[in-house]
Amino acid sequence: MRLFVPLFMTFICGMIIILQFFVPHRPFSTLGERLTDWYMIVASAAIFLGAVNLLQVHSARIRFRQKNWQYSPVVIGGFLVMMAAGFGWGVADGKPFDWMFQTMVVPMGATMFSLLAFFVASAAFRAFRSSNWRATLLLVSAFIVMLGRVPIGDVIWRLIPGAAASSHPNLVNEIAEWIMQVPNMAGQRAVMIGASLGVVATSLRMIFGIERSYLGGSD
């Protein structure tokens, strides 16, 4: 029974959601709407679970003095202060929550992502080597796209005598756009179709009870 009930529920819910796309009339449309409402309620509840989990994990880290435990009080403190500000004064413009978001969360988040530029530069220097013809092809394409995606690419191109007056004064940009719209699109489309077929296959396996790993067991 412990296995049958979740598998049966998955089958019924999965079939209703699929059928509402093919039969957009009652009862499937209303049943599908009801299920999507439930999904949003469950997903909202998951946020609270996440918050409790955050507190549990970091409390344990402090209690057992695990590696880098010194950061955990900052996490818990930040979480509690933001939560108190949100519940106490709301999230409208100019309120404490908004002020902390705009002056602390936003700059810190942007800073973390900006650090990527340094790591990308260092990694590109050490790893982007033309070790064979495929790597060289990738390297040349990357150079063209990197130049074509910034205005200096065409500024350099126009330094070549006659280039500015030619019929292609923005040639680097045009070639970069061609790479994006033809070879890139072909490759991306293949990846996307493959991934979509995988999603369809996995979903059907779950609906029909063949794939059961989401239940927490090994099979």
Binding site: A117, A121, A124, F125, F128, L139, F143, L147, V150, I152
Partner: peptide
């Protein structure tokens, strides 16, 4: 633009 040139230079 300049940062792209620097990365390309390193590559």
């Amino acid at each position: 633009s300049i940062s792209h040139l620097v990365i390309m230079g390193f590559i």
